[in-house]
Write a protein that binds this DNA or RNA. Structure first.
Length: 258
DNA sequence: ATGGTCGGCAACCGA
């Protein structure tokens, strides 16, 4: 089973890139973040024509998550609870009997802002959500834009960036707590080298050439599933196409199911 | 070097 995650920064602006990428890479599951479309505006037909199912929860202008899959997704749930709280940032499905949780973690704006506190609380809530709904000794995949680079090798200048949004000790602590609940960073398990990034700020000139990136998009799995992962990589190819996103897809393959 | 550029959507917010 091949699982991928991609922050698209508008599914409508990026539709051709995503569809072409699906055809080229043929993942079993593709999780999207920042779709920036209401459910009525989500381009379902394009995915169905490509042979995929699409489930999604969006809103106008901001946020929005979707799961694109070859198999019919089951147990579709959006948000943290029965009320669907923060449903445009969290969508969970079961595919081939494997639960997949797709999140768009709040970016947090700036460490001194109220939004930073909200980001930390959001991660705490997510920890409780995993604890309430899943068990670390059972298969579970968590993917998405976590908006946190976990380690020094995940940013281009860790000394300068430490304490900035996305590379802050409190974010690291919050993420570490969730990892200690029972996750393995599947990408890092297969790719030990530094300097592999999923995000390049397009406000910065020549960011890709200068390698000023961040690894903030992730594929994590509980141990029984991580043990079945066979490879993982970041796909820079979409950047060569028209209208690149500032994020790029991350992919992992597991020796299970189809 | 303390800016820069996207996307959505109609003035600026979020990233």
């Amino acid at each position: 089973m091949k699982v991928a995650s991609f922050n698209v920064n508008s599914i409508r602006a990026r539709l051709n890139i995503v569809i072409d990428w699906l055809k080229k890479e043929s993942p079993d599951v593709l999780c999207l973040q920042e779709t920036k479309a209401t459910d009525a505006d989500f381009p379902v037909a394009a995915f169905e024509e490509t042979g995929y199912h699409a489930v999604f929860r969006g809103e106008k202008s901001y946020n929005g998550v979707a799961v694109i899959s070859k198999e019919t997704p089951e147990n579709i749930r959006t948000g943290f609870d029965e009320n669907g709280s923060d449903g445009t940032r969290l969508i969970a499905v079961t595919i081939n009997k494997i639960p997949v949780v797709n999140t768009y973690v709040p970016q947090g704006s700036h460490p001194l802002s109220i939004k930073f506190k909200e980001k930390l609380e959001w991660l705490q809530r997510l920890h409780e959500y995993f604890n309430r709904n899943f068990k670390p000794d059972k298969p579970l995949i968590w993917v998405g834009d976590f908006n946190v680079a976990p380690e020094a090798i995940d940013v281009h200048d860790p000394r300068r960036l430490l304490g900035e949004i996305g590379f802050h000790p409190e974010e690291h602590a919050a993420l570490k707590k969730i990892m200690q609940w029972g996750f393995v960073d599947v990408f890092r398990m297969h790719q030990p080298e530094a300097g592999q990034y999923t995000f390049y700020d397009y406000r910065a000139k020549n960011a890709i050439k200068r390698k000023t990136g961040w690894r903030v998009d992730h594929i994590w799995a509980t141990r029984p599933l991580a043990e079945k992962s066979v490879r993982a990589w970041i796909d820079m190819a979409p950047r060569l196409l028209e209208r690149p996103s500032d994020h790029t897809p991350i992919v992992a393959e597991f020796k299970i199911g189809p």
